[in-house]
Simulated scan of single mutants.
Amino acid sequence: MMLSLSFGSEASAYARHRPDYAQAAARWALEFAPGSRVLDLGAGTGKLSAMLVALGVDVVAVEPDPAMLAELGRELPTVRALPGSAEAVPLPDASVDAVLAGNALHWFDMAVAGPEIARVLTPGGILAGLWNVLDDRVDWVAALEKVSGSAAIGPRDTLSSWRAATAGLLNPGNEIVDRFGASEQAEFPHGQRRSADSLVATLATRAGVLVMPEPERTATLHEIREFLAGRSETSAGDFTLPMLTGVLRARRLRR
């Protein structure tokens, strides 16, 4: 199974356990948008769409996975939700003022998606990716990363790896340089209340874990659970998981 297509098998678990996004991050992403029409591209179960609805913008969601799209419809029945992908967006030219992608931009084939995103954006419109990342400047989080392995906590899943992995996604030299200006990054604190059980359930929705053979998946999650049981920060009930929402944004050129 392709990693990008693995989430639909656990769509309801994804909806329950994946974190939302920091409102400050979404506001920063939309700061220079010329209007309030926003496309949530690769919308999944609607985690980012829900945040955008709360901010009062006009949201349309596009998602390629039928199971994820169905879950989005159940969670957000008032949001216009369409089947489609970043490489084939089912919207007219210049029909949105911003395109946001929550934990999804790295899945896009930018050689195809870049021109397609530029097509649906108005001149001066915003393209932004948002990622929820663990704050590995905190000792126990850094230790959790080592125990969990790259399948559960991989590229872009911690602050340090996110900064490195996303810095070049929209930079000059790639396929969309002639359509977008230079990109910029920012991070916003976004701690999440978790228990050991709910954190294990969250990590179980990671793409690398979803595609593991069942014995390996069970062993990995058991090792994570044992680690959490042995740490003072996480062994006595609910705790705050130190997280941030990282944002990468660029503006469509007006030419």
Rank of each mutant, 00 (worst) to 15 (best):
A250T: 02
K47N: 14
V79L: 03
R18F: 13
P123K: 13
A67P: 05
D197V: 00
P90T: 01
A167K: 03
A43G: 15
V247E: 06
E184W: 03
D238G: 06
E75L: 04
G102A: 13
A236F: 10
T122I: 06
L248N: 07
P77R: 14
V138I: 06
G173D: 04
D238K: 00
D157V: 03
A182D: 02
R163Q: 08
D238H: 14
E116A: 15
H106P: 10
A219H: 02
A13G: 09
P92F: 13
L100C: 06
E175H: 08
E87V: 12
D109F: 05
P66E: 04
H190F: 13
E87S: 07
P90W: 08
D109R: 13
D197N: 01
H106Q: 07
S6M: 06
R194M: 00
A70Y: 11
V112T: 14
R179T: 02
T234N: 07
G102C: 14
Y14T: 12
G173F: 04
S6T: 05
R74L: 04
G168M: 12
L244E: 07
G154W: 05
P92V: 13
E63M: 11
G168Y: 14
G114V: 01
S12T: 07
A196E: 06
A61F: 08
A250M: 00
S161L: 09
P155S: 02
T166G: 00
S148W: 15
H222K: 13
P123D: 12
A94L: 02
D139T: 15
G46Q: 04
L228C: 13
F239E: 00
A104D: 09
A201S: 07
A15D: 03
A88C: 05
R249N: 02
A15C: 04
E145C: 00
A94P: 02
S160D: 11
G102K: 11
D65C: 10
P77F: 10
A86N: 09
E31W: 13
P34L: 01
L100V: 03
I176W: 15
M2Y: 12
E63P: 12
G35T: 08
A81W: 08
G208M: 01
A81N: 12
V211K: 14
T158Q: 09
A101E: 08
S195L: 01
R254I: 15
V62S: 09
A143D: 15
A118P: 11
L105R: 02
A207W: 12
R137L: 01
A219M: 10
E71M: 07
L55E: 11
A61W: 15
A86H: 05
Y14F: 12
F239K: 00
P189A: 14
V62L: 04
M212L: 13
A250K: 00
N171I: 05
A143S: 11
G168E: 06
A22Y: 08
L144Y: 10
L69M: 04
A182C: 03
R217N: 06
R37W: 08
L244Q: 14
A22R: 04
R137T: 09
L130H: 13
A219Q: 10
A61N: 02
A201Q: 13
G35M: 09
L55G: 03
Q23T: 12
A229F: 09
L210V: 10
S49M: 06
E223N: 11
T166E: 09
L248P: 04
G246F: 00
R254P: 14
N174F: 04
R193A: 04
